[in-house]
Structures are given as C-alpha cells and as structure tokens.
Simulated scan of single mutants.
Amino acid sequence: MKLQHHAPQQQTSLEENERLRSGFAGDERIFLFYNLKDARYRLATRWAWLTSFDNVWDACDAFEALELAEGDVRVLARWSRKEIARVPRTRFGRDAGSMKRINYLVNSIERRAAGLRPQPCGRKGSVERWIPARHSSC
C-alpha cells in the first residue's frame, strides 16, 4: 500500500503574498504586497492589512502618499483609498506619471485629517473647495 502525499489545501499568508515595496510612514513600517490568490495589491503594516487596490498604479500612488503624509497610518490609508476612487488618474492627463497626483493625494488626505471634505463647485464641478465635514468620518 502506497502512502499518498497531499498538498495542504490552504496556503499560508506568506506564500499567497509577494512583497513588492517597503518603506516608512512616520515611525511605522509599511509594505505593498501582491496577493496571488485574489489578484489584488494590498497595503499593510507589520501587524494589519490597511487597504487593497485592483491595479498597481493606484496602489503605488497610495503607498507613496502614505510615505509623505503624517498621522495614523490606518486612517490615512482609508482616506487615500477614498481619494483615489474620487479622483481618477486620467484627470492628470499626460502628467499622470509625475508627482502631481501624489502631491494632490497627500494634500487631500491632510485636509480630510483636518476635518474638511471636498465640495465640487463651478461649472461642471471643475473646481473644488474644502468645507468643514458634517461628521468626523468624512
């Protein structure tokens, strides 16, 4: 009688994730992983998953914005995801690969941390102003 060796049904989290980048956000270490199982890009600290993205461009922009912004990394990650969903890469046109988008993300995240929220105004909503948020979760 031969013994059959079965591979484990569930892989460990280290085998499912490939680390792409690492850096520091303030005094906390942050990582950018690619999850092989879900085909998503995830931002994480050593202790917790922060947020995830469908494409590498948004994930890298959020990673760089977290490195430049100051504050609680978990809150900043949530706001960076919200800002990336609100402002598409196409808004920056041919400068999409420059630091303009990251600078805009950092400024928006810091404004949200200060208790403000964006309000589109002007013709076709092409201008935005920042007004006090109705509640703290923006």
Results as ranks from 00 to 15, higher is better:
134 R>Y: 06
90 T>S: 15
13 S>Y: 05
85 A>V: 11
97 G>N: 12
49 W>P: 06
36 L>P: 01
108 S>L: 03
9 Q>Y: 07
36 L>F: 05
124 K>A: 12
120 P>K: 14
11 Q>M: 10
57 W>H: 13
104 Y>P: 02
125 G>R: 13
135 H>I: 09
48 A>Q: 15
32 L>T: 00
105 L>Y: 04
92 F>T: 01
51 T>Y: 02
96 A>P: 00
119 Q>S: 09
30 I>L: 03
46 R>I: 07
10 Q>T: 09
97 G>M: 04
106 V>Y: 03
2 K>N: 13
45 T>Q: 08
89 R>K: 13
63 F>M: 03
78 R>G: 05
64 E>G: 02
13 S>P: 03
20 L>S: 02
64 E>H: 05
10 Q>I: 15
68 L>E: 11
42 R>D: 04
89 R>E: 07
77 A>N: 05
131 I>K: 08
61 D>N: 08
81 R>V: 03
32 L>G: 00
23 G>R: 08
116 L>R: 09
18 E>Q: 13
62 A>I: 03
9 Q>C: 05
78 R>W: 07
50 L>F: 10
93 G>K: 04
89 R>L: 09
80 S>H: 05
106 V>W: 03
52 S>K: 14
114 A>D: 10
84 I>R: 02
15 E>Q: 11
80 S>K: 01
21 R>L: 15
112 R>W: 04
70 E>A: 11
106 V>K: 04
24 F>N: 14
96 A>E: 11
87 V>C: 08
16 E>M: 09
25 A>P: 00
98 S>G: 15
59 A>D: 00
83 E>L: 14
121 C>A: 09
105 L>N: 04
104 Y>E: 12
1 M>I: 10
61 D>F: 00
24 F>D: 10
108 S>Q: 03
7 A>E: 15
32 L>M: 05
29 R>G: 01
